[in-house]
Simulated assay, not measured.
Amino acid sequence: MSDEDALLSAIAAAPDEDTPRLAYADWLDEHDRPVRAEFIRTQIEIARKEHLPRAVLNRYVDLFKRNQDLIEFHRDEFLGPLAALPRDAVREFRRGFAAQVALTVGDFLARAELLAAARPLPKVTVSRVAARLDAFVRSPHLACVTRLELYSAAIAGGFVWPGDAAVIAAAQRLTRLEELDLEGCGINDDHLDLAARYPFPALTDLDLSNNQLTDYGVENLLATGWQRHLTRLVLGGNPIGDDGALELAEQWPAGDADKLAYLNMRFTNVGPRGQQALLARFGGRIDLF
Rank of each mutant, 00 (worst) to 15 (best):
P162W: 05
P162I: 02
G163R: 14
D164T: 08
D164E: 12
A166F: 05
I168C: 03
A171Q: 05
Q172R: 13
Q172I: 01
R173C: 05
L174I: 00
R176T: 00
R176F: 03
R176G: 01
L177F: 05
E178D: 12
E179N: 07
E179Y: 06
L182Y: 02
L182G: 01
E183C: 10
E183V: 05
G184Y: 09
G184V: 11
I187Q: 05
D189A: 06
D189N: 12
D190H: 15
H191T: 09
D193F: 12
A196V: 12
A196R: 15
R197D: 13
R197F: 10
Y198E: 04
P199F: 07
F200V: 05
A202G: 02
L203Q: 10
D205G: 00
D205K: 00
L206W: 07
L206M: 10
D207L: 10
L208S: 06
L208N: 03
S209R: 15
N210M: 15
N211P: 09
L213Q: 12
L213K: 13
T214A: 13
T214E: 11
D215I: 10
D215H: 09
E219R: 15
L222F: 12
L222Y: 10
A223M: 08
A223I: 04
T224C: 03
T224I: 03
G225I: 09
W226E: 04
W226L: 07
W226R: 09
R228N: 10
R228S: 09
H229F: 07
H229G: 13
L230F: 14
L233A: 10
V234M: 09
V234A: 13
L235N: 04
G236Y: 09
G236W: 08
G237C: 15
G241A: 13
D243Y: 13
D243M: 12
G244R: 04
